[in-house]
Amino acid sequence: MLIIDCHCHAGEGDGFTGPWDTRAPLKKFIQWSQEAGIRKTVIFPAFHTDYARANALVANITNRYPDRFFGFAFLHAERDKGKIGAMVKTAVEQYGFKGLKVHRHDARISREICEAARQYRIPVLYDPTGEVSTVELIAAEYPDVNFIIPHLSSFADDWRAQIAFIDVLARHANVYTDTSGVRRFDVLETAYKRVGAAKILFGTDGPWLHPAVELAKIDALKLPLRERAMVLGGNILKLLTLEPVRK
Rank of each mutant, 00 (worst) to 15 (best):
L26Q: 14
L26E: 09
K28C: 11
I30C: 12
W32Y: 14
W32S: 13
S33M: 08
E35F: 06
E35N: 13
I38S: 11
R39Q: 15
T41K: 03
T41M: 15
V42A: 04
I43F: 03
P45T: 03
P45H: 04
F47C: 01
H48Q: 11
T49W: 10
A54P: 08
N55I: 11
N55E: 07
A59R: 13
N60G: 15
T62H: 05
N63Q: 15
R64V: 08
R64L: 14
R64D: 15
P66I: 04
R68S: 12
F69W: 02
F69Q: 08
F70D: 02
A73N: 06
F74V: 10
H76G: 04
R79F: 12
D80N: 12
D80G: 12
K81M: 01
G82D: 09
I84T: 08
G85W: 05
G85C: 01
V88K: 04
T90P: 01
T90S: 02
V92S: 12
V92C: 12
E93A: 15
Q94I: 10
G96C: 02
G96N: 04
F97T: 03
K98V: 10
K98T: 02
G99T: 01
G99D: 06
L100G: 00
L100N: 06
L100D: 03
V102W: 08
H105T: 15
R108I: 14
S110I: 00
R111V: 03
E115L: 15
E115Q: 14
A117L: 09
A117S: 14
A117Q: 07
P123R: 04
V124E: 08
L125H: 13
Y126C: 07
D127V: 00
P128D: 01
